[in-house]
Design a protein around this nucleic acid. Structure first.
Lengths: 122, 122
DNA sequence: GACATAGTTCAAAAAATATTGAAATATTGA
DNA sequence: TCAATATTTCAATATTTTTTGAACTATGTC
């Protein structure tokens, strides 16, 4: 994955509606949902749902399959895994061991977050 | 991390300029860079750089520290690790086995070592 | 064929984001 | 103190994204 593809994916995930949408499809994986079922779960008009689904499709985060007169959407998990791999590479930049240790420490004691890289935290 | 925070982070990463900016700061971690140094690396006006840095700060992805008359910016790696943990949880949603298989099939990248599933981080 | 259903596309309006130059703030050094 | 430097804030403009309702396409049913 390159930076351009990554920004398209982050843009796809940067709206409340679309993140909810994607998480819903993950929840209903691997069967997915048809558009009408999605509309029942989320409070958006059909038109707007189409718009956001198209953005997720463009980013490659979901797939679409025709099913009679329905359209079934599914989360594309491998693309999400590639995204995670990209962030993992970007966030540590060759300091993977260090980051992994500190992340483990973070999980062990969430209050005292250890720093990975810079010695500052918010 | 909740969905609201996640969308703010994805929004921060959804612009070419800001993704480049964040990756630059990761590259120069843990020392970070002062604003002027950043401006030399990226082709952006100072004003616009300030604007984008502020968004990354708001998302928590970078930290700022005063240094005489300079301002030093650093990537906040723990926040990125939390983001990866969030995506890892979102992408599999209780179907860890299935995702792990897909991930194994995906492992062309030498970097990605994350497993899938909420309680399985690193 | 006529009709209802599922979902999309289109065009316009509304809202949010990005970029710019000028002015402001703060720090350093002479 | 004065001038130079580093960087931000402000206000205006340009651009992009989101939302909406109406019209359209395709499928299934009677």
């Amino acid at each position: 994955m390159d930076a351009k593809q990554a920004t398209v994916i982050f843009e796809a995930l940067s709206s409340d509606v679309r993140l909810d949408l994607f998480r819903l499809l993950v929840k209903y994986a691997p069967e997915g949902l048809v558009a009408g079922e999605i509309a029942k779960h989320l409070k958006v008009t059909n038109t707007n749902l189409s718009f956001h689904l198209k953005m997720l499709l463009y980013a490659g985060l979901v797939t679409m399959e025709k099913e009679g007169r329905f359209l079934r959407y599914r989360a594309n998990i491998p693309v999400m895994l590639d995204t995670i791999a990209y962030l993992t590479a970007e966030c540590c930049s060759g300091r993977n061991e260090q980051c992994r240790e500190q992340h483990a420490a973070n999980l062990a004691s969430p209050v005292a977050l250890l720093e990975c890289g810079p010695a500052k935290k918010i």
